[in-house]
Each structure stands twice: as C-alpha cells, then as structure tokens.
Design a protein around this nucleic acid. Structure first.
Lengths: 198, 198, 198, 198
DNA sequence: CATGAATGAGTATTCATTCAT
DNA sequence: CATGAATGAATACTCATTCAT
C-alpha cells in the first residue's frame, strides 16, 4: 500500500519534472522550482530521491526502458531488415518529438569529457551512455542482417546520432517535424547517402 | 613589447582555458578553477577579459577564424567537387584532432535549448551558432555543385555533424583517429550511405 | 501562524538592520555583516528579502507609512495653523528620536548625486525622495493657511531639513534632545528667524 | 625643484579628482578611474598620496582653506554685522555653486554615525567636521555682534546647513541658482523666519 | 619617479541539502 | 511522511593596494 502510494507519488514527481524540463530547458532546473511546480515542499523531494542526481537518473530511466522495449519489439519482430530500419526511424522520431528534453540531455550530458575523466561524470550522464552502449550492441545485429560487412559499430552510432541531428536541425532552423517526410529523408540519407539527393 | 607580453599572457590563459575545458568539460568551468589552474589570482583574469562570457567567446574565436580560412581555401579552390568534399573531411578531422575541446563546446553549447529559450543563450553559444550558419551557407554551394537537388541545407548540417560524430565515436569507444582511414569511411558514409558498407 | 513567525523574523531582521545601520552608518552596510550581526547564515537573509535593495527599502517603508499617518492626522485636524506647526515639530522630533537611523538614511541616501546621475540611484533612495515630495506637497498647504505668500515649496523643504539639522546638531555636539525646549527653539527659529534670539 | 614639480603634479591630480567627482558623483569614484582620467598610471597616484583616504582629504583641504580665508576676510572686515551676514551668504552660495561636489561630500561624509563610532569615521569626514567646528566657532562671534543672546552655537549650525539646504533644494527640484535672489531669500529666512514671507 | 600587472579580500547572490517540527 | 527555514559552500565580479621592472 504504502509502497504503492510511494511509487505513485514518485511517478507523479518524475512526470512533473519532465514537464518542467521540457518547458523550461535543462540548465535552469532546480529542486526548489520543481518542488513549487509540484506543489509540495522541497524536503519532500528528498523522501523520494536521494539527491538531484538520483532524481535526474530516474527522470530518464523509465523512458529509456520504454525505448528499450520498443526497440526490442521492432528488432525482434519479423519484418524485413529494411522494414525494421524504417520502423526504427519512425519510432525514434516519434520518441524524440514526445521527449524533447531527452534530446537536450543527450546533447549536454553524454559528454566526451566523461570518458576521459569518468570521475567527474554525472550519474544520469553515465546512465545515458550505458543505454547508448546497449543500443549500439542491439543495432549492430540489424546492420549485420542487412549485409553490412564493415564498421557496424560506427554505423550504429551514426544511426543514433543522425536521428538526433535531424531533430536538432529542425529546432535550430525552425523547421517543423513531419514524420512521414523526415523518416523518408533519413532513410535515404542513412542508406544511400547524399547520392540519393542528386 | 608590453602589448606583446599582454597578448602572450592572454593567449596563455586561453590555452590553459582550452586545456581545462578539454579535460573537465564545459559546465564545470569556473573562473576560480581557471585561475588556480593557471597559477594566478582570480582578479588577474579580469585584467585580460571583461568577464567569463568574454573569455569563453575568445576561447573559440580565433580558431573559428582559422576554420573559416581553411574552408574558404578548399571550397574556393579549383578541385572537382568530390575532391573538395574529401579535402573538407580531412581538414575537419585534422582540425578536431587538434582542437578536441571545440568538439565539446559544440556538443554542450550549441544548445537546442537556446532556440526555445533564447534568453538563456550564452554569448559563445551564439557565436558558435553563427559560425554554423556560415558554414552551412558555404557548404550548400558545394552540394549544389555536386548536383544535389534537394535538402541541401539539411545535408550540409549532416556533414558538419557527422564529422563530429566520428570524433565522438572515437572518444567514446577509445578508438584511435586515423585520418586516412576515417576520411575514407566518412566519405563513403556521407556520399553513399550504409549501402557502401554492404 | 507560520506567516506570523515569518513576519516576526522578517521584522526581527529589519530591526537588526536598523540597529546596525544606526550604529555603523549606511555605506558600510553589507549582507554578510548583517547576517553575522543577526547570528544567522547569509542565505537566510535571502529567504526573507529578494535582495539587498529590497531589504533596504523595507527598512524604511513601514516607518515612513507611520509618518504619513501622523502627519495626516495633524494637518487634517482642526487646530489653528500655528498649533499645527508646533505639533508637526514635536511629532518630528519624537519620531527622529525614536528612529535615529532614518536620520542617517536621509543624510546618506537622499542624494543630490542621484538627481544628477539618476542611473546610480538606489531604490530606497528613490523611496525616500518620493516621501519627501509627498511631505512638501502636504506641508505647502499649511504654509498657505498660515498666510505665507511666497516660496512655500522652499520653506516646506527648509522645515523638513531644519528639524533634521537640529537632531544632527545634537548628535554632533553631544547635546541631549529635550523635546519641550527644542520644539520651542525650532518654532522660534523657523517662524521668526534669528531675530527671535536677539 | 623636484618638490615644486611634485607639488604641481599633486595639485593637478587633485584638480582632476574634483573635476571627476563633480561630473560623476562620489560613490562611483575609484583610483583606477581617476588614474585613467588623469592619463597616468594607477601606481603613480600612490607616489603622491598615501591612499584613497589621504587623497580625498587633500581634495577637500585646500578648498576648505579657501573658505577659511574668505570667511576670515568677511568676518574680520569692517562691515556692519548685517552686511557681514549678507556677505557670508553670497560667498557661501558662490562657493557651493563652484564646488558642488563638496555639497555631496558634506551630505554623505559628515556622518552622525561617525560621532557615535569615531573609529569607523573616514579621514576626510573627520576633516570636514573639524572645519565645521571652526566655522561655528567663528560664526558665533558674528551672532554675538548681532546681539543674539541665546543658542548661538545652534544658530551657527543652522546657518551652515540652511545654505546647503538651499543648494540641495535647487538640485532636487531642478531650480536654478540665482545668487541675488537666493541670497535675499536666505537672509530673510534666516533672519526673520517664515514670518517674512507672509 | 612612473608604470600597470598581479593580488586577494570582499561583495551580492544562488542552491542542493539537512533537520527540527 | 511532509514541511520549509536554515545552512554554507560556491559563483561571478570589484577594487584598493603593492611591487618588480
């Protein structure tokens, strides 16, 4: 019961946190603001989360679990490889559309610096890198199925980043996301390169 | 002479700043830490730079000028379009190899958040975005020369990002940069897509 | 209740601030010193006041409201003009006796400089000047009732200042305030000038 | 020779300091700004003055000497007392017109607080208070000559302050100083009080 | 003497975290 | 469990003063 209630409240807080970050950006995020936004006391947050880092990990955690699940469904399904690739793209675009803050998190927190000096890495940054690792491992298999012979890991990474790049491009240039059009574009670019646009 | 000394010290501080940022990431960067890292007093920094923002812009400024110059040389040269593309890749890789901290700056400071919340944008972030704008404008011409009919702006952005992606990938996975090999890889991926690796 | 406690502490801090300023003057006043003087942490001050300016305005605000009220009562009453003038003097002296720090605030913060350089004016300085304005407007009426034909505004200002001058004189020369005696003195000087002392 | 040069430069710096303070107000005054305004190095200032306090005393010193001299001339002259009083007023108004910064200095630095806590007093504040003391002593004699029987010291103080009050009033209300008119006004007020304006 | 780079203590302010209620 | 007042270390920045050249 209590645990249940606890879980509920925890989830409610996380939802609010996402909402806030999505609306106001990441660097302005503070515990006070979150508490006020949730309509609870600052101290209460610390009953549910060890600290800000912990909360930030949890903010990401379940949505990353969600991706894991969706990716598993697509890659473990019975479509042709190309169909899977297209599905991956559509799912990725839809996901980032609904979780724009994660895009920012990725941009800001999956830091190269953390690789050189892991001690200074943030917990949520580490978490995101672990997910990236998992994703690349998983995606390499698809590339293998598609007959890709070399550099599968790099290409897996490119896939992950290129999708974010498209979202970033849209944001930076004020272009609207159109999943049908943009999924096609991405597929063409990723599979055939610039050549496809000649 | 004195001016020379001033310039020297200014450059020395900027060098140290780059070193620090390269090693520890951007968001942890403070004036106190830099002062200590330089072995000078906090106040001294303010004899050379108006404020933190100013210093951070200066950290980027001259090297961006350097890129501008090199890019102009390649794109304004007499090579075939494909030759130019290859040269751009080699130049870009070499540049990032020598200026690894700029990679982080880009990752951390060309923020999507700043497009949604421009008020919170930093001066050096704006500076980098302006450079990006310039680069894309310039690169679109090459794509046009290569006969690319559609989505040239997006593809220009992809070029810029893909190069950084390769560098990031190397860092994240501990892979060594090999300009010959990696330039070929990038050319293949960018021009022909994943297909080229089948 | 809680609000009550809050208000209490807020008032306690303001009281301490007045005490400190009364004892040490205004230009030396800092948030650190106040915090230490209150025996609380620096950050705590910011739980009660937005910033130093805000605190300094609040230091003055309620007591100025008090003067407003008392002045209205006297000037709006049914005494003869001369009676009103005498009452004003007694009230003013009593007020400054009980709020010596305000004397310093006036001396230091209703700055002539702020008129020449309004950009550098402080919020509490502006506040005090607005009160002065109000007072002069109000007092001009009394002078009119007394049959004063010319220079009423200047004379209103002289009234305000002369009262402060007496207080300052007492402080500077170690003379004790004696309201009966000093009210008479002021009345004589203000109404009849030096002549009255011949 | 050298001493002469030294004295010359010292005076030049003091002149510049007055000019700066008169133009920009007192609270913004810093050694760096003065050095730049003089076109010399910061360190040079310290060859001529022990510290900022010392410089600020010297800024006042000679002009106060000037007043001393003028006051002596008037009070020691052969005019009738009333003539002397009128001369004092005209001389005072002219002096403050030409040395507006001293008005600010008086307002800000002859602090009541310094009487209660002399340890925190500034050197130039002390200097100004000493001058005030001298002035009051000197002026009391005139009042005596005019047949003033009581409260001569207080009235001397009032004289000093009232003159400043008129200047302040002009500044605060944007009124222009007109020495003929304002000297008459002051004489009437000081000698006959408000009564004279009925 | 003149210089001006270097200093460091000091200023206002923020914010993650704790703890008595 | 919930609260929110209190904390204090940290941040960017200033400026009177010193001292090697």
């Amino acid at each position: 019961m209590v645990l249940n209630m606890e879980k509920h409240k925890r989830q409610a807080i996380l939802g609010k946190a996402r909402e806030w970050i999505g609306a106001n950006g990441f660097s302005e995020f503070t515990m006070s603001k979150l508490a006020k936004f949730c309509g609870i006391a600052k101290g209460t947050l610390y009953n549910y989360f060890d600290n800000k880092e912990d909360l930030m990990v949890k903010v990401v955690e379940d949505r990353v679990a969600e991706i894991h699940h969706e990716v598993e469904e697509i890659l473990g399904g019975s479509q042709e490889p190309e169909g899977k690739l297209r599905s991956m793209i559509r799912q990725g675009l839809a996901f980032y559309r609904d979780n724009l803050d994660l895009l920012m998190l990725y941009a800001n927190e999956v830091k190269i610096a953390d690789c050189k000096f892991p001690s200074s890495a943030t917990a949520h940054g580490r978490f995101l890198r672990e997910h990236l690792e998992w994703f690349m491992n998983r995606f390499e298999q698809l590339l293998s199925d598609m007959g890709v012979k070399r550099e599968r890991r790099l290409l897996a990474y490119f896939f992950h980043e290129t999708m974010k790049n498209l979202m970033s491009f849209n944001m930076l240039s004020g272009r609207e996301l159109d999943i049908d059009r943009d999924a096609d574009l991405l597929y063409s670019f990723y599979f055939h390169g610039v050549e496809a646009f000649q």
